[in-house]
Amino acid sequence: MSDAPSLLRLQRQMQARVLHGDDTLLVQIADNAGVGATRRARVYEDAYRLRLIEALGNDFAVLKAHLGAERFEALAASYLADHPSRYFSMRHVGTELSAWLSRHPVDRLAAQPHCAELAAFEWAQGEVFDAADSNIVVLGDIAGVPPEAWHRLRLQLKPAIRWLPLHGNAPAFVLAHSNDASMPAMTWREEPIMWLLWRRGFDVYWRALESDEAAALSVAREGANFGEICASLCAWHPDDAVALRAASLLKLWISDELIAALDFDQVAP
């Protein structure tokens, strides 16, 4: 037939049908069993919507529970309209949801910044869950650091760590959801608190950081040596207490399994 579409044109027509209900595909559909082209095409349209909304519902289970299934599905559909997937794997489809939410009101009733933070928190949990594996420093490894090397000691944090500044109480929502408890009241503070999420074994943990710990861990992550980590604590502690606080933080980070390696220039014996 002279007007048979090229493969490229047919694929564009079919994709446009699935994404926006475009009509141009319908005349290309053979219908030998009397089902009707529209109803045949609809199988793909419905499957697309259901599959991606279900995937988002799994990745953002707490947000879905908070909003209710119906509102969540409407939100997911409108997110997908703005962000059709460009990823090879469905596990990435929700990558932009939190950022998108912070720009788009869920609806008149929902607290939008709060929902965006909840989405960011759930996404970070997922990222930590299958982030790269690494070595883990144990407390005994500290004994291998010679006293004269302490000031140039650098900490290598492991890859399965995420940081998240939160104004609201998203973690309390996640906790309530996993305990099958009712959702707490929303709270919001002017100054955000830094939260740390990390993997230990196969489980994802999180906790709020004290502001001195957040500062010290942040300079450590940027490659500061132990002397510089101590210096970062001077804003919170008197000079004679800084070393002790730094040592106790280091112990805490090691027992939380945050540290992948202790780097110091080994001097040849």
């Binding site: 493969l7 699935v18 997937s85 460009r86």
Partner: peptide
């Protein structure tokens, strides 16, 4: 999918020599 998008579904091909 086409044009960089992914429908995350197994979409059918026309059964042609071109394909």
């Amino acid at each position: 999918g086409v044009d960089g998008l992914n429908l995350h579904d197994l979409m059918p091909l026309p059964q042609t020599d071109e394909a």
